[in-house]
């Protein structure tokens, strides 16, 4: 069995090498297909990440009256926490709010001067409310506007990122559709090229194949090197794609960092953490594509 395997590998290698230019064209087309699929994966990753970050940003900021005492604030918070569909309620007291305000505008001397002129902390405490579903925000806002909370609330603001989310969704949807289209074109070209390569291989080896049949080779032994050869193409294309992929990610990272301003998201790390799924999936997909084209070519042209 091992001997047969070794000989099949050897024959496949010979096929590959003896038609080196044809093999290189096939590998190039498969590589282009893999690159387009990888690009699609990057677009998908970035859009999913952007959307989840934006979703995290949706919240209701409730600014409390500065005159409220600590006990009143606690009581209000408890009442809010009792409302349904809440994900989290985070209290920022007046001192923390001032500190954060100063940090945010540390480069703005006008604001610093104004704060000095006021003398005391003009900011009140605030609550940041996150809701577990999109629809829940309006309910909570309605609740906050009811009379029972009027005594506590100075202003309630709903930072609505839904329009941004919808824009990002639309944009990534379009990008994905273009990506799918380009990938499909490359996949179809790859199918045709692999089909043609194996067909030409069968043609150039027709004498050898005829002799193999004559001297008692099984049809499996005749087909297997062609099949293995198509897996060689896939392996090489995946390797070349990986060699292009990581430098491309490095080049892309500064733009990603500026896009996710303030968030720690690293594309290279993302794919490094998932290499054991991503690359085998690309290789298996590419091999299946290649094997499919070879099988069709063999069915059509290899008369055993």
């Amino acid at each position: 069995m091992l001997i047969a395997f070794y000989r099949i590998l050897r024959f496949a290698g010979q096929n590959f090498w003896r038609n080196i230019w044809l093999s290189l064209v096939t590998v190039t087309i498969l590589t282009l297909s893999l690159i387009s699929v990888s690009a699609l994966s990057i677009i998908s990753t970035l859009s999913n990440e952007a959307l989840s970050r934006l979703e995290e940003k949706i919240n209701i900021s409730v600014y409390l009256k500065p005159t409220l005492k600590l006990a009143e604030i606690d009581s209000f918070k408890k009442q809010i926490e009792a409302l349904p569909d809440l994900k989290s309620v985070n209290l920022i007291n007046a001192d923390e709010a001032l500190k954060s305000f100063k940090e945010r505008y540390q480069n703005n001397p006008l604001i610093a001067e104004s704060l000095l002129a006021i003398g005391s902390n003009p900011l009140g405490s605030s609550l940041t409310i996150k809701v577990s579903s999109d629809q829940g925000y309006q309910k909570i806002l309605d609740e906050l506007e009811s009379d029972k909370f009027k005594a506590y609330i100075q202003e309630a603001r709903f930072d609505d990122y839904r329009r941004v989310i919808s824009t990002v969704n639309d944009l990534t949807g379009k990008l994905k559709r273009i990506g799918y289209g380009v990938s499909l074109v490359f996949v179809l070209i790859a199918l045709l090229v692999v089909f043609n390569t194996i067909r030409l291989n069968i043609y150039t080896h027709r004498e050898e194949i005829g002799i193999m049949r004559l001297v008692g080779a099984t049809s499996w032994f005749i087909r297997a090197p062609l099949m293995v050869e198509s897996i060689f193409y896939a392996a090489l294309a995946t390797a070349i794609c990986a060699l292009i992929f990581y430098p491309a990610l490095s080049a892309l990272q500064p733009y990603v960092s500026s896009f996710f301003d303030g968030f720690d998201f690293n594309l290279i790390n993302y794919y490094n953490e998932r290499w054991f799924i991503f690359w085998p999936a690309l290789f298996v997909g590419c091999s299946l594509l290649s094997i499919l084209a070879s099988t069709v070519a063999m069915r059509k042209y290899l008369k055993i």
Partner: peptide, 9 residues
């Protein structure tokens, strides 16, 4: 070759 294709060692 005739033996190789028939798995002869």
């Amino acid at each position: 070759f005739a033996l190789e294709v028939s798995n002869a060692d």
